[in-house]
Design a protein around this nucleic acid. Structure first.
Lengths: 123, 123
DNA sequence: TTTGCTGTATTAGTACAATAATACAATAAC
DNA sequence: GTTATTGTATTATTGTACTAATACAGCAAA
């Protein structure tokens, strides 16, 4: 049900984002071990290298750590994950305001859009 | 001040979006004539071919019409432009909810984010 | 030691965006 | 009619991003 990969953007990037979300939402709990590169690659139906690239970005973000033959573990630092989750959500909000501003909507009008969109989510 | 082109996405696509916004926000008014391909290309600092590709997408969207040697004119159909502007804004809102949902935020929580973000826009 | 699992590095193939240089077509202005 | 300017089409080239195939390296358990 996951891994809805689009052709329009780099796959490794989408993989990174999905893995990121899985960690931040607790699907891969803090301190736990993650599935192996090849395992995840098979699950997502991509080349191991592509998945690896995504995982290395997780390392870079401090969300995971990898040791040579022992596998990869999720950070135990829950402060970090909570903060990052908030930051990503804040970024989404800022992006929304930016996009609507470019279309000539004031912040108040943009806020109205959100309220209206929230009412009817028919799908 | 415009034409903030990023390397991360196709240039012709960004050009299209910017031109689109210029029309929807009235910078190129309904029924008016647009600058020529070469002129716009020079202004944006890109190859004429690249700009042309963007402009042809405008044609495809029904926002502009081009006649051979007479130039390109913005559609006079203000209903279309108003509707498209609303649609784009609605899309931004939906995207916001989608992104926050992927991070485990409920719609109510997402709405809270917007309100809080709206207060402190310190930049 | 051997086997099998980790993560990692290197290489090459493929696709495509962007540019550039032209040439062409059609209309308007003179 | 000539000239200038418009949009359009074509072709080649360059650079680069993405992916895949493959080989390598390190550790653990049998």
């Amino acid at each position: 049900m996951d891994w809805q990969l689009s052709e329009e953007r780099p796959i490794f990037q989408q993989l990174y984002e999905e893995m990121c979300r899985r960690i931040l939402t607790g699907r891969y709990p803090p301190g736990s071990r993650m599935p192996s590169v090849r395992e995840l690659a098979a699950e997502a139906g991509v080349n191991p290298n592509t998945m690896q690239r995504a995982l290395q970005q997780l390392d870079g973000a401090g969300l995971t750590e990898s040791t040579r033959a022992d596998g990869r573990t999720v950070t135990a630092d829950e402060t970090l994950t909570r903060r990052l989750r908030q930051e990503l959500a804040g970024g989404a909000a800022r992006r929304f305001f930016c996009e609507t501003a470019a279309l000539g909507f004031s912040r108040a009008e943009a806020k109205e859009l959100i309220l209206r969109e929230e009412d009817g989510h028919h799908e």
